[in-house]
Write a protein that binds this DNA or RNA. Structure first.
Lengths: 339, 339
DNA sequence: ACGTTTTCTGTAAACGATTACAGCAAGGAG
DNA sequence: CTCCTTGCTGTAATCGTTTACAGAAAACGT
């Protein structure tokens, strides 16, 4: 690996000149330096640069589960949002563990210029600590308590859930099961509230047995759906608040041989990889995950640019809420007429 | 951020002692140093370490498409394979472009200790250049020409495809469409060959119009399936060589209202995220993607350990082939009796 | 008590870049 | 022709570690 010394020697100038040339300053011997750089195939040593300047041209990305196709799509978007060259992504998976998240953050601390975080829960204080230290952070899909100072890119959880509720009401459903996520996560809370508030507006009561809280994982979707099916009076429709719980619900319904949508309608928040190929195709509230990831990275890159100029505090925190769309396919229908 | 200097000052020793303590050597003033480290919350600066030692405690991961759930599962496995702490993953997506791949490799060059690569094609020379320079590399799911010197973790492509072929033959199919991947990729080539060789053994001929080569993307699966459906004499079964082309095939079959498996049986290599929830559930050749990822990372970590001791050449290259399993679900059946 | 070996310590030199500083050349104004 | 300004340049300090080297302290045998 040639160093800047080698380039300087070959070009017959000092290292300072080479460095300046590379950072875009005008230099008398530009041609000679360019030639030397090309001939030697010189590339600056990132570690040395980082040590001297404190900037690493890398960002840390911590998602709760990289194996989840939803986050895979998000990460794809993040990658797209990275400008031309030189900026890199350090990816880690917190496996929904606050402890692991804390360790990962500590490990990444001296290697990145900023973070993309999907915090484990809203009580998570770590993101705010970072922000207070002046580290650029953009939250992904989840907010944290008191996190007004922090950039965040959400989707319209309440609005999307509300549109799902309206859709079911329009079809004539009045007895609806709700499987939401943890109340201390943004999507868990907002989707439940958005859904229930629309029902309340239309004087539809959701009794406790129909208002269930899961953990966003497939297994809980399955279990809670079974619970709904075991009720003396089953709901005519079910709303599941995320993709994995929707899968669980599908499994439970299939296992119990409940015809969808004839017997029970199902509507989910977020699409499944093959949602349109299912029989029936899944009706759901969708969003553009790749775009969401791209937006997150764009915000972060912008903030990194400012941090470079030491004007972090000046940039006001931004809260981007992306739209959702109700995608009506085949898993919802008018409720069966009971005797 | 406290430096090693601060720790040394507080503990009343020299920086050398602190450094030695941290690297596990016995030190007279261990207690004092430990106290200072804890009290100050000292963490070594990775950039400085990297610059001094040349080791970055990071590996580069380049996959063709991180948005593909298959690679997401692989990456999950990679993350699991990382030992306790300090080693990180720089993730990048080559988008199946050799050019981008080259650029990414160049960018990552001075930041990582080793690579996990899923090369764009088998003619790709970059991985071997790295190996020749003594850089630890483990190939993922795809080999490269002349890459005998390189660790690689594959699945039994030929064997898996062969089991699919036998399954179709057992059911009585004789007119079978094959949609394989690019001949210059390992999975593309091996799966086609494995499949066809079994047919050949049983004297089943696959005429040119039934032996199609796609590009592993959904769209090509769709288009080639349409092509098969347009034949004067349609096949009674179709084999698709990867997950995305299977999705394309499903779409085409559904669009043409071809009942599966009654009219045409479908079998794919690799499962789909919801393969079991489809109607009919998909019959396919499956593997454990997470395990494959984990294995890759374990090989790499091992090689990194040896590189540290400057004995890279001594470690012979390893070629791990993971098993596949034929998962018979509902998308294959005996061919319809023709008049 | 003394020499010898062993173990630990501190000093200082790297690693490869950026940049403050001071110096020098070129160009313009008088 | 001199002086001042402008624009580049090179020297050297610096970032935070690790580690070769040499020297001091401890441990040991006699």
């Amino acid at each position: 690996m040639p160093t800047i010394q080698d380039v300087a020697a070959r070009a017959g100038v000092s290292v300072a000149t080479v460095s300046r040339f590379l950072s875009g300053q005008t230099v008398r011997s530009a041609d000679a330096v360019r030639e030397a750089v090309d001939a030697l195939g010189y590339r600056p040593d990132v570690a040395a640069q980082a040590m001297r300047t404190g900037r690493h041209s890398a960002v840390g990305v911590i998602v709760p589960d990289i194996g989840n196709p939803f986050f895979a799509a998000i990460v794809k978007g993040l990658a797209q949002g990275i400008p031309d060259g030189g900026l890199h992504m350090l990816l880690a998976s917190s496996e929904e563990s606050a402890q692991l998240e804390a360790r990962l953050l500590a490990d990444l601390d001296s290697r990145v210029d900023g973070y993309v975080l999907a915090p484990v829960n809203e009580q998570d204080r770590l993101p705010l600590e970072l922000v207070r230290r002046g580290v650029p952070v953009v939250l992904l899909d989840r907010e944290v308590d008191g996190g007004e100072d922090c950039d965040v890119v959400l989707v319209d959880n309440a609005g999307g859930a509300a549109s799902a509720a309206r859709h079911l009401l329009d079809l004539g459903h009045r007895r609806i099961g709700v499987i939401s996520g943890p109340a201390n996560t943004t999507p868990g809370r907002e989707r439940r509230e958005g859904f229930l508030s629309v029902l309340a507006e239309h004087d539809v009561v959701v009794e406790p047995g129909l208002d269930l809280v899961g953990d966003f994982l497939e297994e809980s979707g399955r279990r809670l759906t079974e619970q709904l099916l075991a009720l003396p009076e089953r709901p005519t429709a079910i709303f599941t608040a995320n993709n994995q719980m929707t899968v669980g619900a599908l499994r439970a319904l299939q296992a119990a041989s409940v015809p969808v949508p004839d017997e029970i309608s199902l509507i989910g928040f977020d699409d499944l990889t093959l949602g349109g190929l299912l029989q029936p195709p899944l009706t759901c509230v969708v969003r553009d995950e790749v775009r969401q990831g791209r937006t997150v990275m764009e915000l972060l890159v912008e903030r990194l640019g400012h941090a470079r100029l030491a004007e972090t505090p000046q940039v006001p925190p931004r809260r981007v809420v992306l739209e959702t769309t109700l995608l009506v396919r085949g898993s919802t229908a008018t409720p069966r007429q009971e005797a």
